[in-house]
């Protein structure tokens, strides 16, 4: 059972493994937020959606394991997480498009509503163990157990990897993508084209929330694989900042998510090889990274490249 110690190699490997394990929620939430913001509305409530998704995925996986078996029930959980996200998204999409309603304010309300609802409904699921998603052992070739365990990939992560370029292609090359961008950049022009702004935004927000809900399923059904009320620790909000960092570009969202996922592993990885000083600082790495990004990207002297034109405008 004893494995050879890796020593210093544990740090890069730990961060790499942490990246592969921990970036999926960031990826899904940021892709969802990217789609939402491209249509010209902001959905800050994705933190609540993430929690709701995590709770419903865990709950459904637990409750259906006897009916459909432990192989299929986590996938039902993933679907349930997506749909619970969509319901929250629909509420946000409808509210945020009412006259003289500020979408940022609605988003904050949705954080509180989503997390409160998840905590309330999630009470019975804290203790039981739900069946987890299968992992793909990509590292089977390696004889080093550490590498083998680091390369246990979640299929959801791979799906996320595929969605990022797909979303890019969707925005660039499809008619529907053009609609979303048109509504986000210039609602007047979109209206002149005969596109329903309300419907496009509603669908974008709902689809974005669907993705964020699946992000929650990654947390509760893959890594760390439990449902607790502290499961998200602000990941939904960080993902919103990450979209700005990524300049509303889905593929850059992917790189940014990997960076944030890896940042979470820095503190524990350093401590495990004996760097004991400043562990509070290393543990805070993701939050510090968020702050740094804000300082770097948010300058009053220039506009952000890639920002949808109608983002934050009253319609």
């Amino acid at each position: 059972m004893a494995a050879e110690a890796l020593g210093w190699w544990g740090v890069p490997l730990g961060i790499l493994a942490g990246t592969l394990r921990g970036s999926a929620p960031f990826l899904f939430v940021s892709l969802g937020e990217c789609l939402t913001e491209k249509s010209g509305k902001i959905n800050l409530g994705l933190e609540g959606t993430l929690l709701m998704g995590a709770m419903s995925a865990y709950g459904v996986s637990y409750l259906t394991q006897d009916i459909v078996g432990p192989g299929l029930s986590p996938w039902l959980g993933v679907v349930a997480a997506g749909f619970s996200g969509m319901v929250l998204g629909a509420i946000h999409g409808w509210l945020a498009q009412q006259p003289r309603v500020n979408d940022v304010a609605v988003g904050i309300a949705m954080i509180i509503f989503g997390s409160g609802l998840a905590f309330f409904l999630g009470k019975p699921f804290i203790q039981p163990q739900a069946p987890q998603l299968v992992t793909l052992n990509v590292g089977g070739w390696s004889s080093v157990p550490q590498i083998e365990s680091a390369l246990k990939l979640s299929p959801l992560f791979l799906i996320g990897l595929a969605i990022a370029p797909l979303l890019q292609w969707f925005f660039r090359s499809t008619r529907w993508g053009l609609y979303v961008r048109a509504v986000g950049d210039s609602p007047e022009a979109a209206k002149a084209m005969g596109i329903s702004i309300f419907q496009v935004r509603m669908l974008s927000i709902m689809a974005g929330s669907f993705l964020a809900g699946i992000g929650g399923a990654c947390l509760s059904l893959y890594y760390p694989g439990v449902w607790t009320e502290r499961i998200s620790s602000g990941q939904g909000l960080m993902a919103v900042a990450l979209v700005i960092f990524a300049h509303w570009n889905p593929v850059q969202c992917l790189w940014a998510s990997l960076l944030f996922g890896g940042a979470q592993a820095i503190g524990p990885a350093f401590q495990s090889v004996g760097i004991d000083t400043y562990y509070y600082l290393f543990n805070a790495a993701p939050y510090i990274l968020t702050l740094l990004i804000m300082i770097i990207t948010c300058s009053p002297k220039r506009t952000l490249i890639g920002a949808p034109g109608a983002l934050g405008q009253e319609d």
């Binding site: 020593g7 439990v226 499961i231 524990p268 495990s272």
Partner: peptide, 18 residues
């Protein structure tokens, strides 16, 4: 007291270190 992701990371790093 409650940091699920960090606790999982810590456990994994320890396992990596033998």
């Amino acid at each position: 007291w409650a940091m699920p992701v960090k606790e999982a990371e810590a456990t994994n790093s320890m396992a990596d270190q033998g």
